[in-house]
């Protein structure tokens, strides 16, 4: 479903991504981890073309992201993305946040969009907050709204860019629970995160990145029990110690 082939990206002479390749099958959940600055967020943003790349090819559902002829907006409408800082639209109510792109991008009627939106709010446990504004919600609630907003577009896959990094610790689980539910329903997911508990629970594979390279791409059992690279071992020992 998502095919990343030899992707490289640089700002001037600084290499952000070097020769990254990975395959994601339909229904797979891939966790991407690595030290900060290793290029994991950049890589995931390349998948829906939010970040351009200079070399290589990314194909999502048969459509080449890097091809200048590709209608990126059309592709992105069906690739959900959740950001570290939620990025809800602060000037719209929660329900309008969920409806705006359904109406303006997918061309759904307002009634249809509201119905779909309310269903998803219910799913993330926030139906009673529909008329509130994002600023009135906690971080965890905002991120759940953001997930619902992405799901409202009926995405073929979901990209998560450190979805719990900006949250207070006690709110991490409410967001992870929603993501686990999605994974168990068979949503194709690429998740940049340091939440190894989440990875253990639902990931099919773990990709470990360092200095812009994919150092390791292994089934999660292998990754956690016997990471092959020294760098991944070091990283794991550091984050799993606590």
């Amino acid at each position: 479903m998502i095919s990343i082939k030899n992707v490289s990206k640089h700002y001037g002479t600084f290499k952000v991504l070097t020769d990254c390749s990975a395959e994601v099958e339909k229904g797979e959940v891939i966790v991407i981890c690595g030290p900060s600055g290793s290029g994991k967020s950049t890589l995931i943003k390349c998948v829906n073309g939010l970040e351009p790349f200079q070399q290589g090819e990314i194909v999502v559902n048969g459509i080449s992201v890097g091809d200048p002829k590709t209608n990126l907006s059309k592709l992105r409408a069906h690739v959900g993305m959740v950001f570290q800082n939620f990025e809800l639209f602060p000037h719209m109510s929660v329900i309008d946040n969920l409806c705006i792109a359904q109406i303006k991008v997918l061309g759904r009627s307002r009634e249809e969009a509201i119905e779909r939106g309310r269903k998803l709010l219910e799913r993330v446990g926030l139906l009673n907050q529909a008329e509130k504004f994002p600023g009135q919600l906690s971080g965890g609630q905002q991120q759940r709204v953001a997930i619902a907003r992405a799901l409202a577009m009926d995405p073929i896959c979901m990209l998560f860019d450190e979805p719990t990094s900006a949250l207070d610790p006690e709110m991490v689980n409410e967001v992870l629970d929603v993501m686990v539910g999605l994974a168990q329903e068979g949503m194709t997911m690429m998740v940049v995160t340091h939440e190894m508990g989440f990875a253990r629970k639902v990931a099919n594979r773990v990709i470990f990145m360092d200095e812009g390279r994919i150092v390791e791409d292994a089934p999660k059992e292998d990754f956690f029990s016997k990471p092959r690279s020294e760098r991944a071992q070091l990283f794991l020992s550091k984050i799993l110690q606590h």
């Binding site: 993305m81 705006i100 907003r149 577009m153």
Partner: peptide, 21 residues
């Protein structure tokens, strides 16, 4: 915030639509 444009784009909005809405 710069991320707002990214979020709007990620939902399939064009530059003009994201600006306007």
């Amino acid at each position: 915030a710069r991320g707002q444009m990214g979020a709007a784009n990620a939902l399939g909005m064009s530059y003009a639509m994201a600006m306007r809405l």
